[in-house]
Computed example of a mutant assay.
Amino acid sequence: MIVRKLSDVEDVEWGNGLSRRFLTLRDGMGYTITDTIVRAGTTSALEYREHLEACYCIAGSGTVIDSAGDEHPIVTGTLYALDKHDPHQLIASPHEDLRLVCVFTPALIGDEVHDLTSEYSQY
């Protein structure tokens, strides 16, 4: 059994926020669970070419823009899933951080960070 508290995991600075990775590849579960903070007022161009991701908003608000340019509001209680390695933009509200619980498959090694200098980043 694996039991971890937020105080047990390290913060990984990923460019526009923090990712606290509760499960990683070394845990042998086949997926990663994170508690992710997206800083207020930031826009992140993202794409995971090797991972699928689902995000559930537990605090804050923002918008995710899909590759077709459609905007989807994110508020507490909203889930979005990137089921096709979708390029997307994640925008946090200018007034508050966005907090997401995210699941990645396959599992992250644990120290990956986004490259926000390119059009779309990847792990």
Rank of each mutant, 00 (worst) to 15 (best):
S61K: 12
S19T: 13
A107L: 07
K84Y: 11
S93Q: 14
D11G: 05
E112N: 05
Y56H: 12
D83V: 08
Q89E: 14
R39T: 06
H88K: 07
A45I: 01
L79A: 07
K84M: 09
D11W: 05
S44E: 06
E112S: 02
R4V: 08
D8I: 02
D97S: 04
V3I: 10
M1A: 12
L90D: 11
A92W: 04
C102M: 14
D115W: 13
S67D: 11
R20K: 14
H85R: 11
D97T: 05
A59F: 03
T105A: 10
C102R: 13
R49G: 00
G60N: 06
V38Y: 00
C102L: 11
G30S: 06
T34F: 01
I65D: 11
D8L: 00
G17D: 13
R21E: 08
D111I: 06
T76I: 08
G77D: 08
T117Q: 14
A40I: 00
C57N: 01
V12F: 06
S67G: 00
H85Q: 05
L79P: 00
V101D: 09
A45M: 05
E13A: 11
T117M: 12
F22V: 10
T24R: 12
Y123A: 15
I91L: 10
Q89F: 08
R99I: 04
D66C: 01
G30A: 08
C57T: 05
Y48G: 03
H88E: 06
H95W: 09
C57Y: 03
R39P: 00
L100M: 10
H88I: 07
L90C: 10
L52T: 06
N16M: 12
V3D: 09
S93D: 15
Q122W: 12
L6W: 14
R4H: 08
L52W: 12
L90G: 07
R49T: 05
C57H: 00
F22S: 10
L23F: 11
D70I: 11
G77S: 01
L25P: 05
G17S: 12
V103K: 14
T117I: 03
L82K: 15
K5R: 15
L46R: 10
V101E: 13
G15Q: 04
G17K: 10
G60C: 02
A40N: 08
T117C: 04
L18A: 11
D11S: 14
E119K: 04
D111P: 00
C55A: 13
